[in-house]
Design a protein around this nucleic acid. Sequence first.
DNA 1: TTGTAGGCGTTATCAA
DNA 2: TTGATAACGCCTACAA
Lengths: 314, 314
Amino acid sequence: MSHILNGQVERFTTETVDKVRQAAVELGYVRSAAGRALAMGRSDFVILVAPPTTLTNLRDIVDVVSADLEKLGFNVVVHVHHLEGFPTPSARLYHLVEALRPAGLIDLGSLSEEDLLAVERTGCQVLSPTIGTGGPRTARDELSVAIGRAQAHHLHLRGYRELAYAFLAGRRDSTWGRERMSGVAEVCAQRGLAPPEHLDVPLDAVGARSVLGALLGQRSTPVGVACYSDEVAIALVFAAASIGVQVPRDVGIIGLYNGPVGQLVSPRLTSAYGDFRVSLGGIRRAIAETYGGALPPVQPPGAQVVSVLEGETT
Amino acid sequence: MSHILNGQVERFTTETVDKVRQAAVELGYVRSAAGRALAMGRSDFVILVAPPTTLTNLRDIVDVVSADLEKLGFNVVVHVHHLEGFPTPSARLYHLVEALRPAGLIDLGSLSEEDLLAVERTGCQVLSPTIGTGGPRTARDELSVAIGRAQAHHLHLRGYRELAYAFLAGRRDSTWGRERMSGVAEVCAQRGLAPPEHLDVPLDAVGARSVLGALLGQRSTPVGVACYSDEVAIALVFAAASIGVQVPRDVGIIGLYNGPVGQLVSPRLTSAYGDFRVSLGGIRRAIAETYGGALPPVQPPGAQVVSVLEGETT
DNA sequence: TTGTAGGCGTTATCAA
DNA sequence: TTGATAACGCCTACAA
């Protein structure tokens, strides 16, 4: 019966347990989320909130997270978070949370504090990189900051003494952008450089060209630009070529690996690479701590969280 | 009572209805999806299956579809479909369908016939571009075919008399690839050209170079290559440059617009562009027909379903 | 070690 | 026009 299909296995003889399980499989029995949710007050779905960015690979992330959660008996569904143009930005998310009553919600860093609190208030566990294991809610996503640091560090190493951070136009206020930027700013401060200039790069040739032109116009020393994404980096690299600016001599450009395309073009992009398995480490640990389950392998202490793919643009 | 909170409003006096509604709002009452699903045998969730491709913009698609469905009282969740490496390729999907008992499932063209039938057998409505409105299950996704045709047509127009189709390596058997290819083949037949050669292009510089080398090795006439995606096209364009093959003189390359990056690089990519609003037309119409609701605006008869962004590679 | 009954919130049916 | 009540499938507490 239901006893067996839950944890209460050990109350019965192995024989009975086997028989029941056998039957369940044969009949193709899958317990209904509805009934369960009704009785428990909470379903066994976990919502994964997909950030509004083309991330390295949503599918890979979902695969890892799902695998962990399925071992614990949860189901993962993805909620695609739209940016703007809706009544309340997160109305859809709230509605989903109320209706599904999910066991948990996994945020990869795209939700605001406010949204996270609102969700939590419904009694739904919230797992987020910005929520330490019980730590203060204000914690930053360390991976994002580390990416910014790695980008800046690389540029500094290559000899650039003036740095800039290139946001994707219209996304300047994204959590990720801000955090990566702050990593760059940190390194600048440490090394005694001026704080990084801010760029807003649109993903079209003309726009990118004018942004780059404005940056370089008054300058005679080379400048290193850390970019929000490989696409932004590509926009700048080809903008540079089109206005006769030499890369990497006059301007150094480092992207953030989010697809193979940066390595296909010429010049090959220099790109920071945050291993998504590492970045998921926190989430996976949170899953294990929250729902009980095997802890994911701990990263060796000196593990390279962020590495740099050395291309031809720095 | 519950009667009022449903459609059965008109059975009561306005007064009563108002009082009940008032109370409901005051208590912050939200009707539980669980209870509803249990009673109905079916939840009001609709699963949108996200194809394993970086599509033009998953978020845009989700936005359009969600907006339609929310007007009809449905909730949309996304199921990210992984490719391989799991017991049964679609085990997760099946499980999700059984557990959620969704009102419907929207496939954008990535599911196999078999999977669709299996899902439908559980009593879940299936909306798919390959399923006409009551038409035969074997119908092709006309948009995909049209894309292939447009690519081939453009290449022919530009003077290429030998055509090839470049699949993304490892995805040759994807529904989309096959259908687009068949569009190319169709045009070849119509114009009296030889059937298109098949290429499998990996997304790395070395691999792409060798594929292109093999294609051109024995050839002296220019060849036009229709590509599965802009990324594949970029791989080929830069592979050509690296082995001293002139684009578009020796080889013409046309991609499939799936992001701004193709328009940022130099040479600017020529790319076919299938308007996702048009491609969603079928799905939206199916939604309206299945669940009742406003029909989406009908495309003007001569509407350009697929257009070609003319770049510098053909 | 096993079976049973009551309740979760909603819908639908039937009686008043 | 209303109110009561029996499912729906699952979980849990308690009885056998």
